[in-house]
C-alpha cells in the first residue's frame, strides 16, 4: 500500500519535459518533491505565478508572493506574474499540460466531487471547477477509501459535482487506474496489494487490465 508521498512519487512519473503543471493542495503539492532527473516542468499557481519555486528561507519571506494555498513561496529564474483573469485564461484555454488534484469521490464515468459536503460548512470550490473543465490531462490523487472505509471510486458520485466526465487517471494508495468507457481500468497495483483488495475497495465498475503489473518507482 502507498503512503501519501509514494502516491505523489508515482504521479511524478507522469511528468514530461516541458510540462506546465498545476498542483492542488494536499497530496498533489508533494509531487513537486519527486520531479524526475532531467525533466523540466514549470509549476503554475492559479493566483498568478508561473515558475513557482520552493518555500523561502526566513529572510526571504515576502507577503506579496504566495501560492494558491496562501503559503509563502519563491520564484525561479524565468518566472512570470499575471492577474487571476490571465491565470484562468491559461487554465480554461487548455494551456496547462497537467493538473493534479485531490477528490472526495470519482465516478466510473469520470465525474469528480471534491468541494462540498451537504450539511457541512461549505468553503467554496476555489479554482477546482475551472481546472477540471479546462485541463484535458488530470490526475486525481487520493486514498482509495474514505475514513469510514467506504469506496471513493463509485458508480456515481453522491456529493455535489465539481466536474462531469473529466477525470481519466486516478492514483490511490492501492494502485493506478484509468477511466475509460464507463469503467475503472486497474493498470498497476501498489506493492503488497492484490487485485482482490482493489476489487473490494472499488464500488464502481472495475476492469483489470490484461497487463496489470506491480507499480515501479
Amino acid at each position: 500500500m502507498l503512503d501519501k508521498n509514494q502516491i505523489a512519487q508515482r504521479i511524478a512519473k507522469e511528468l514530461q519535459d516541458g510540462y506546465y503543471v498545476n498542483l492542488g493542495i494536499g497530496i498533489p503539492t508533494l509531487v513537486a518533491n519527486y520531479i524526475p532527473e532531467g525533466i523540466d516542468v514549470t509549476l503554475q499557481s492559479e493566483n498568478g505565478l508561473l515558475g513557482m519555486g520552493s518555500f523561502p528561507t526566513e529572510e526571504n519571506v515576502d507577503a506579496d508572493l504566495i501560492n494558491a494555498g496562501k503559503q509563502t513561496v519563491t520564484m525561479l529564474p524565468g518566472s512570470s506574474l499575471f492577474s487571476s483573469a490571465e491565470s484562468f485564461e491559461m487554465i480554461r484555454g487548455g494551456h496547462v499540460d497537467l493538473t493534479v488534484l485531490g477528490a472526495m469521490e470519482v465516478a466510473e464515468n469520470g465525474d469528480i466531487a471534491n468541494w462540498k459536503i451537504p450539511g457541512k460548512m461549505v468553503k467554496g470550490m476555489g479554482g477546482a471547477m475551472d481546472l477540471v473543465a479546462g485541463t484535458d490531462n488530470i490526475i486525481v490523487a487520493m486514498m482509495h477509501t474514505n475514513r469510514a472505509g467506504a469506496s471513493k471510486l463509485l458508480k456515481a458520485c453522491s456529493l455535489p459535482l465539481t466536474g462531469k466526465n473529466c477525470i481519466t487517471k486516478v492514483v490511490t494508495n492501492l494502485g493506478y487506474l484509468t477511466i475509460e468507457n464507463g469503467a475503472f481500468i486497474l493498470r498497476e497495483l501498489a506493492p503488497g496489494v492484490t487485485i482482490e483488495d482493489v476489487k473490494a475497495a472499488t464500488e464502481g465498475k472495475l476492469i483489470v487490465a490484461d497487463d496489470v503489473k506491480e507499480m515501479e518507482f
Partner: peptide, 25 residues
C-alpha cells in the same frame, strides 16, 4: 468558481455582458 469570477469582473470592465464557459457545466 475562481476563474469564472475573474472573467466576470474582466467582462464587466470590458463591456461584455456575458460569456460562455465550460466551467461548472
Amino acid at each position: 468558481p475562481q476563474g469564472t469570477l475573474a472573467e466576470k469582473c474582466r467582462a464587466g470592465g470590458a463591456g461584455i455582458p456575458a460569456f460562455f464557459t465550460a466551467t461548472g457545466y
